[in-house]
Design a protein around this nucleic acid. Structure first.
Lengths: 342, 342
DNA sequence: AAAGAAACCGAAAAGGCTTTCAGAGACGCT
DNA sequence: AGCGTCTCTGAAAGCCTTTTCGGTTTCTTT
C-alpha cells in the first residue's frame, strides 16, 4: 500500500507537436493523417512517422467541438440489477461499437428524478442520441418531444406514439410457446405466470390463449397469475395438480416460476417431460441449464432488441426518424423439459 | 411504423445567444452564470433569465477542451454477462455520479484485442482515468505503466505490483464463513467448491482451513474442487455423504453449488439446517432467497469494491497515487440454511 | 469638484482540431 | 521568356467556453 505523489504525467502529443516534428504546418499534418488528397506522398509519410513516434491520438474532444457531433450515445437504464437491461445494453454496445460510438452508462434506479438528472447530464455532454431501456414491458412516460436529440425506447415502450419504441413481441411469444407444446403432442396445457400487473404477463397469456383457440383448445383452468418467484411456482402447481390432475403441460411466465413448478411436480411424483412438459420464459441460462432436466424456454432476443434500438437511433441521427412501437420476434429454445433427451 | 424526415432540430443555445439576448458580452454572461463576483446583481439576473428562456446548457465539450479534463472515466469490463462486473460498475457509477463524472461502458468480452481497442478509444476521448474490472479474482496482465491516465484494477488484480488493485478478501471470506459455522455449533465441516484453477477457490479454501485450524479442527475430507455448478454440488454431496455420513455442515464455493448440495441433501433425507448446515458464496439473491430454506451466503461487497476503486481513481487523478493490492472485507449474510428460522 | 477607489464590463486569447482559401512552386506549352 | 495549370502547403477562421486584464463607469472621500 505504498503511497506517493508522482510527477504529473506527460501530456499526450497534439497535432502541432506532430507538425513541428515533421517540419510542416498543422494544416498539412491534419490532411496527411486524415487521408486528404492534397498532400505529397512523401510529406504524408513523414507526418505519419512523426505521429507514430509521438504516439499521437487526435483529441476527440476537439474534434467533437468542431464537428458538432460527439459520437456518443446515452443509454438510460432504469435497473442495471435486473437481468433484462444488460443484454439490451450489450446488443446496443455491439451495434455502436462497430461504428466507433461510445456509450455512457446511466442507471436511474427506477427513479424519475434521477432520470431527469441523467438526461440533463447527457445532453450537457452533447450526446448524439438517447436510448431509454426499461425494466419491464409496460409503457412508460415519454421523455418529451422537445429534446434536442433523437430518442429510442427499448423494451419498455413510450406512452407517446410519436416516439419510436422497440419491444419484444410478447403476444407472439405466448403463441410460439403454445405452438411448441402442441407440436410436442400436449393438449391439456396450464399457464402459471407472474404479477398480473405486468403487461408481459397479460400479453403472453393472451398469445397462449389465441394459439390454443386456433387449435380448438382452451387453457386448463384459468391463467395462474401470482408472483415471479419459485415459491409461487410451487404453490400454484400444488393447487393445479389438485384441481386438474390430468394436466400434461405447464407454460410458465418465467424461468424462476418454472423451477418452482418442476420442483413441485417432482415432489408429487410427476415425471418431466414424460408426464408433464414444462416451459419457462426469459431463457436465463443459470436457471435453464442448471435445472433437472434442462428447461425449455422462450428467449426474448434482447440483444437483438438492443441492436435494433441502436440501429434505429443511428438512422434517426442521420435524419430518418420512425415512430410507433415496433416488435421483434422471440424464439423458443428447446431443452429436456419438453422433449425427452435422446 | 410511420416514416418521415423531419426538419433538423434546432441547435441548442450557446453562450453567445444568451449574451445577445441579455444585451451583454459573452464574458459577462459566462461570469454571471458561473457565479463570478464581478457582475452587478441586476445584470446577473438578466443573464440568468435569458439563459432560462433559451434553455441554455453549457457545452461540456467546450469546457472539457478548455479545462483539459473531460470528467469522464472509462471502466473496462471483461464480461458484462457475468454477475460480478455489474455490482462493481454500479458501485463505481454511484461514487462518480455524485461528482458529476460520466462513465463509459466498455465490454471487452474477455478478449485482449478488444480490450486494447477500447483502451485506445477511451484515451482518444480523453477520459481522465480507467477502471479495469475483471471477471475473476486471478491476477491479470497490466495495461502497462506508460498510460497517460491513472488506472485502477478492480476484482481482478494487476500482475504489476506498481499498479493499484482493489479486490475482495477471499482468504478472509473463507475464514468468516467457517467462523459462522463454528458459531452455529458445527464441527464436522466439509467444503465443496468450484474449479481449482480459480484463485478464489484456492484462497477461500485456505481461509477456511486456517479458521478451522485455529479452532483445533480440520475439514471433513479434502476440499471438493470441481465446477461452479449445481450439478457438481449434487455429485460431490452424494460422494461426501457416502464417505462421511457424520458431516454436519457444508461450506460451498458458490450459491449455485450450494443449491445442488441442498438438493442432494434433501434427496438423501437430511434436513437443512437441523442435520446439516449449508452456506453459499456470492450472495446472489435469485438463488439465495429462492431456495428452501433461504441460503446463508458470503457477500463479497462488490459495490463497495466498485466505490473504493472509483474513490482511488479520484485521488489518483488528483495526484495522489497508491499501488499494490488492497483487499476489502466480505460479510456473511445469515439466512435459514444455517440458522433455524425462529 | 476633483481625485482615488471600487465595481463592473468586454475584448481577446486559449484549448486542439478541421477546413477553406490564397499563395507558392513546379511543370508544360506556345 | 511568358503564360496558364496543377500540385502542394500554410495562414487563418471557426467550434464554445473560461479567464485574464485593460478600460469604463460609478461611488466615496476630501
Amino acid at each position: 500500500m505504498a503511497e506517493a505523489t508522482r510527477p504529473a504525467r506527460s501530456q499526450p502529443a497534439t497535432l502541432s507537436d506532430v507538425a513541428r516534428l515533421a517540419g510542416v504546418s498543422i494544416a498539412t499534418a491534419s490532411k496527411a493523417l486524415n487521408g486528404r488528397s492534397q498532400v505529397r506522398a512523401e510529406t504524408r509519410q513523414r507526418v505519419i512517422e512523426a505521429a507514430e513516434r509521438l504516439a499521437f491520438r487526435p483529441n476527440q474532444v476537439a474534434q467533437s467541438l468542431l464537428a458538432g457531433r460527439t459520437g456518443t450515445v446515452g443509454p438510460l437504464t432504469s435497473d442495471l440489477e435486473g437481468r433484462f437491461s444488460i443484454p439490451i445494453l450489450m446488443g446496443a454496445e455491439d451495434a455502436f461499437g462497430a461504428g466507433e460510438v461510445a456509450v455512457f452508462l446511466c442507471d436511474a434506479r427506477g427513479d424519475a428524478i434521477r432520470e431527469q438528472h441523467h438526461v440533463r447530464a447527457l445532453l450537457g455532454r452533447r450526446v448524439d442520441g438517447l436510448i431509454v431501456v426499461g425494466s419491464r414491458t409496460d409503457p412508460r412516460p415519454s421523455l418529451g418531444r422537445e429534446l434536442p436529440v433523437p430518442v429510442v425506447y427499448a423494451y419498455a415502450p413510450s406512452e407517446d406514439p410519436e416516439d419510436l419504441s422497440i419491444v419484444p413481441d410478447s403476444v407472439g411469444a405466448g403463441r410460439l410457446a403454445v405452438d411448441h407444446l402442441l407440436a410436442c403432442g400436449r393438449t391439456r396445457i396450464a399457464h402459471i405466470t407472474g404479477d398480473p400487473g405486468y403487461a408481459a404477463a397479460q400479453e403472453r397469456a393472451e398469445g397462449a390463449r389465441a394459439a390454443l383457440a386456433g387449435a380448438g383448445l382452451t387453457l386448463v383452468g384459468e391463467p395462474g397469475f401470482g408472483a415471479w418467484s419459485e415459491g409461487w411456482g410451487r404453490a400454484a402447481t400444488a393447487m393445479l395438480l389438485d384441481r386438474h390432475p390430468d394436466v400434461d403441460a405447464v407454460l410458465c411466465g418465467s424461468d424462476q416460476i418454472a423451477r418452482g413448478v418442476m420442483d413441485m411436480l417432482r415432489e408429487r411424483g410427476r415425471r418431466v417431460p414424460e408426464d408433464v412438459a414444462v416451459m419457462g420464459f426469459d431463457n436465463w441460462r443459470v436457471l435453464t441449464s442448471a435445472s433437472r432436466p434442462p428447461l425449455t424456454s422462450v428467449d426474448m432476443n434482447l440483444e437483438q432488441v438492443g441492436r435494433a434500438a441502436a440501429h434505429a437511433l443511428f438512422t434517426a441521427i442521420a435524419g430518418t426518424r420512425r415512430s410507433g412501437v415496433e416488435t421483434l420476434p422471440c424464439r423458443v429454445v428447446i431443452r429436456g423439459s419438453t422433449v425427452p433427451l435422446t
